[in-house]
Amino acid sequence: MNGEIEEIRGTFKPELIPAETGGNIDDYEEALHVLMKFVGSMSSALEQVSGRGANAIVYQAGKRMGHEAGKLMEKTDDLEKAMGELSEILGQEFYFEMWKPSDQDSYTVEKGNETEVKLLFMDCVVRQTLRRTGLPQKGPLCYLLYGYMVGAVEEVMDIRGKLDIDHVGPNACLKTLTINWSGK
């Protein structure tokens, strides 16, 4: 065995749940990077095989996950409250805030049956994974997150929603969430 690898030895019974995960920060970093590379390669292979259809497949997968996550949250009609709940679901790894241009009074814009709100994603594991693997943004992996967001909002607010990408950058991405109230 490679002398540099530190082995953890102990006694184990089937019913025991480990109290600690073991390993140190470098192990986690390495594991994360391997995972990022795996996920990135899967995403690019999916795109090569299925073309633009890859986005739709991954979007649906994300949406299903979002609906499942949304079931654990309290239902609400209030968009700002829903955004707060959503940020709890997504956690620190997908840190986002509502955003508006300086000349706009409110975060929400009403358009007939629809309400629009712009979301600025500042921290995003998907973006980090794409950059780790040298892949462009707006690909299938991004659609996983869009689907997840839409699924969770639909579940929490009992509406129909969609998310569009306005702009992507290495430090933040702007998206527009559209809520369709007639889809209730």
């Binding site: 300086s102 702009h167 950058g169 290495p170 430090n171 933040a172 702007l174």
Partner: peptide, 14 residues
Amino acid sequence: VKVEDCMACLSCHE
């Protein structure tokens, strides 16, 4: 000319 609308995406850096 409009720093107040900068959302720090940093795509301009790229």
